[in-house]
Design a protein around this nucleic acid. Structure first.
Lengths: 214, 214
DNA sequence: CGTACTTTTGAATCGCATCAAATCTGGTGG
DNA sequence: CCACCAGATTTGATGCGATTCAAAAGTACG
């Protein structure tokens, strides 16, 4: 495995001390495979290099709940201080992961204040991101969620979408049909300018309410 | 203020070094009072000793989104590295808080690895909570959100609600009418047993299916 | 080419939001 | 103790918007 190249592509790996990096093992797995199961002892901190791994919990009603979708980042960071995981981790696509032994990982945090700070900062950033996501999902209309997303994630009123619209729809808590229709309407009434992956908010001239018959 | 007694009651305070503890100030505030407002400069890290403080955002439509409910724990931990808060913090009940000056707080983190570790663990816990909340808000029906909440927050299938149902509705991203109706229906069809604040899932056995994936 | 997936539009349905209003509750003060 | 008030709880009627089911056109890739 060519570490340097890998690290260059993964900003999340940059802060990891070389000593710890050397202890990592590389694994590939195919879609549908379990990375670990609920009740397993926590042995590794996993970084998802490519593909997607999901943290899943099963409801007593039989339904499944997706707790995390890790892509290009750590999986189940919160399990660091825990003996066992409460969730299953499943490869949602063919994927590659780096496994850091928790013991070494934990020890490195204690010995390397800079790394520790980076780790805590990463967690804090995740908290902020998740809060924004919660706020967005609390919005009642599709249009509001779209505009909120562009305002939050886009730079200066312009968002360059780095995923399919279908995937975006899932992230917004909408069906893809609802998203397509909403984008079409926002473009039609001039709220949004769309060219390919670039979505730009039009400088608002009139009322803040974009949708509906006002 | 009798620190020792206070600390004994608050497991979250145990890890805080005495040096930092001495710099804390104690404040009490009545229900409905704002602890801080969006845009205020971050001056203190707040620990909620008693009562409840909520982090909320107000929607342009007038609705509210509850981003955090702090009870016996820190509020807005993620604001540590930030200049200003983006949310209002409001006392949901009469409450008492400890205020730690951010500068001292931050410096102590750097000097005390054990404290730093405890802090990171707290952040990780918050991440897990928020992930669960995002998943919940992604559920499309009111009933699913209610059941998910009970499964996630309740112990052993039973949830003791520690807030009004109206407030709960806001947390679930529903109107209070929708929540009342949903609870009535779930009780009627035997899915849920309700007595006062105690909500208990009826044990309906069904086995976890394999990944359905997309 | 052919397959798989995304994008796009259409039509029907359903559930939640909304508006409205009655009852219940806890707390305050006369 | 009762009157009163603010807020929570509960039920009803209605409309809108998202889901759902369906299908066609576009796109990437071997």
């Amino acid at each position: 495995m060519i570490w340097n190249e890998l690290i260059a592509r993964q900003p999340g790996l940059a802060e990891i001390p070389g000593r710890l990096m050397e202890r990592a093992t590389y694994r590939e797995m195919e879609r549908g495979r379990f990375v670990f199961r609920a009740g397993d002892r926590v042995q590794n901190m996993l970084y998802v290099v490519s593909g997607e791994v999901r943290l899943v919990r099963w409801l007593s009603t039989g339904g499944e709940v997706i707790l995390q979708r890790a892509r290009g980042g750590f999986l189940a960071e919160a399990s660091l201080g825990h003996r066992a995981d409460k969730c299953d981790a499943v490869a949602a696509e063919d994927c590659a992961v780096l496994c850091f032994p928790v013991k070494e990982f934990s020890a490195t945090l204690d010995l390397d204040p800079a790394f520790h700070r980076a780790w805590a900062d990463g967690l804090a950033k995740e908290v902020r991101k998740l809060r924004a996501q919660c706020e967005r999902l609390g919005l009642r209309s599709a249009a509001e969620r779209v505009l909120h997303y562009i305002a939050a994630e886009g730079g200066n009123g312009t968002l360059v979408l780095n995923q399919s619209r279908k995937a975006w729809a899932a992230e917004l808590g909408l069906t893809h049909e609802a998203l397509y229709r909403t984008l079409a309407r926002l473009r039609a009434d001039g709220t949004l300018h769309i060219e390919g992956e670039r979505l730009t908010l039009s400088p608002r001239v009139s009322s803040p309410r974009a949708m509906s018959s006002n």
